[in-house]
């Protein structure tokens, strides 16, 4: 009986504590800046085009082969009267979010810091009725960054904190 009383006392003591429950659909907990949802492409606001040059580095490094990249000549390049320094630019880009396993490797291999993991709640709440709807095209991938809805965190691999 003594042990039972102790158990009951424990539950009573816990009952008196402050609740820790987060009321999820009505309350979204603030996400840390490193939060990893799904990859998206970043938008170069100065020149008004994506950072991505379509170099295929992420496509080759992806373990689950969820990316498809097509490159084109940049119509906005300086040589043809534009204001961009990028000779090549992304033409079409698809990421199959249903295949992606969010390993962050695409962000690490990118030479242009053009891809980042979505660290907003929009990257987590992605329920659709058809899995084909999870194949994101260039417009969908850049829209969040283009609209300024994200403060991305692009890690430098192996870099230590400053002492």
């Amino acid at each position: 009986m003594k042990g039972l009383a102790k158990s009951m006392w424990t539950t009573l003591a816990v009952f008196a504590r402050k609740p820790v429950t987060r009321d999820y659909p009505t309350y979204h907990k603030p996400l840390p800046e490193r939060d990893r949802a799904f990859p998206l492409l970043l938008w170069d606001k100065q020149i008004d085009e994506p950072f991505c040059t379509g170099c295929h580095a992420c496509e080759r490094a992806c373990p689950v082969e969820c990316m498809t990249v097509l490159m084109k000549d940049n119509p906005n390049h300086r040589s043809v009267g534009g204001n961009s320094g990028r000779r090549k630019i992304i033409d079409k880009f698809w990421i199959d979010y249903a295949r992606c396993m969010r390993c962050n490797i695409c962000v690490e291999v990118c030479n242009f810091d053009a891809i980042a993991m979505n660290n907003t709640w929009q990257g987590h709440e992605l329920s659709v009725y058809d899995r084909k709807d999870l194949v994101m095209d260039l417009g969908a991938l850049t829209s969040l960054s283009h609209g300024g809805g994200i403060t991305e965190w692009v890690p430098v691999v192996g870099q230590a904190n400053e002492a």
Partner: peptide
């Protein structure tokens, strides 16, 4: 407290 000494659990 909840489990270890609880007679039923034992």
């Amino acid at each position: 407290g909840l489990l270890t000494d609880n007679e039923i659990f034992r």
